[in-house]
Simulated scan of single mutants.
Amino acid sequence: MSALEEVFRAEHGRAVAVLTRQLGSLDLAEEAVAEAFAVAAATWPTRGVPPSPAGWVVTTARNRAIDRLRRDAVGTAKTAQLALLQAQPELVDVGAVRDDQFRLLFTCCHPALAPEARVALTLRMVAGLSTAAIARAFLVPEATMAARITRAKKKIAAARIPYRVPEAVDLPARLGSVLAVVALVGTEAHSPAGGDEPTRDDLLEEAVRLARLLVELLPDEPETRGLLALLLLTASRRPARVVDGVLVPLDAQDRTRWSRVHREEGQELVRTCLRTGRPGPFQVQAAIAAVHADAPTWADTDWAQVVALYDQLPATPVVALNRAVAVAELDGPSVGLALVDRIGLDRSPVFHAVRADLLRRLDRPAEAAAAYAAALDRTSNAAERADLEWRRSRLSG
């Protein structure tokens, strides 16, 4: 089943995008791809993985869609969909990018959808993230996220939102949602919501690929470069983030193992952004990552600069938590803890893990143990759980 999971992670988004172009229906495309993977789950363990698993998934999904349309071809709409799929016409590209997933990305980020729905739907359709993973990214219950995604798909169908890359004049209104989507794919890659893997390299590569496409599409927009820089600097830490299958937090990483290629490209992009003089949230986040990349160790980090950069970002709970970590390094754990205790992020395991680490540094082991337990209750990723258990085991008393 690991081979099937690997194909699902790599090809789900592409398959949905291709079938959406061929079918003209996001719902039908997703259902057809889901059926194809169900067939794979039933047949691959005994028959083996096909030579071209990606092509097999698309072909099987297409055949399933044809079968369903034939069964349901009562009205003219279904008949038209069936004719469109069987004919497989070469559609004329609209916009600058010839990429099915990129078209789907902009479709899911249409202004007719609420901002939260745009991001959630794109993470589900384009990146293939589970509803549970997306719910974690938004810090909401899974049932709430499932309903949000369903409503967004219905809105696309009802509003007949086109499947295309928008014209240049329409891009600015759509860019914020697209950037947020790609960033959240990178976040899920860096810290998966569940499973046994400490990181998702496939998702991070996908986020970098989409960010590069955004830079290609909008070369004069500094925020696209800022996002790409942030993702590259995050990717540079991969060789040191997991050692012998064990998750290594940033403060304990051997930075000599960081990828020089990714780090240098990311830092050069940050310098390019600074020269434009048009700062934005992703550029600031990339600048923070660059400060970490400049420091040979955690202790050598320019924490005053990190705090100053966080002060330039919107004051969201997540930004406040990260800023509190930096303040704790600059002014001490008691000051950092006072800031953390003002933040309402009870659903986040990171919030409780940060709080536990600060309590440990203040020699309050009982409270730290309770905070580690709260963090463990809120994460299902095996690597993160192992790291939290190890941290808890170091407590005295």
Rank of each mutant, 00 (worst) to 15 (best):
T144A: 13
V306M: 01
A135G: 14
E216L: 13
T234M: 09
G176L: 02
L232P: 08
L123Q: 10
A295R: 02
T272F: 13
Y372W: 07
G277H: 09
A17W: 05
C108L: 10
G24R: 06
Y163E: 10
L210E: 01
L274H: 13
D220K: 11
A173M: 02
A293P: 09
G280Y: 04
G280D: 01
A83C: 10
T107A: 14
D363R: 14
E188H: 09
V248W: 05
A137I: 08
A40R: 03
A295Y: 01
V325L: 14
A112K: 15
L105M: 10
P296V: 09
L4D: 04
V246F: 02
D311Q: 15
T144H: 09
R118M: 04
R355C: 02
A29P: 03
P349F: 12
V261G: 01
G55F: 10
E5I: 11
I134E: 00
L339F: 02
A96M: 08
V178W: 01
A173D: 14
T316H: 12
R124P: 04
P314Y: 09
A135Q: 08
W390C: 10
R209M: 07
V39G: 05
L175H: 06
A369I: 07
A137L: 09
Q312Y: 08
V182Q: 03
A211M: 08
F351S: 08
L113D: 01
A34C: 05
L171T: 04
L26F: 01
P222Q: 00
A189V: 04
L175Q: 10
R278T: 07
A289I: 01
T59M: 12
L203I: 01
G194M: 05
E90S: 14
V165D: 00
L203A: 03
L388D: 04
P239H: 00
R355D: 03
Q305G: 07
V335W: 05
V169F: 06
A15R: 03
D294Q: 15
P166Y: 02
E31P: 02
D100K: 13
P53K: 01
R257A: 13
I149G: 10
R70F: 02
A240Y: 00
C273W: 13
A293V: 07
V215Y: 13
A10L: 14
D251S: 10
A235Y: 03
T199I: 15
R47W: 09
R136H: 12
R47E: 15
Y310S: 07
A371W: 10
A183L: 07
R237P: 05
T46S: 11
S396Y: 07
S52G: 09
E223S: 09
A193P: 03
V94R: 15
R342C: 04
Q312A: 11
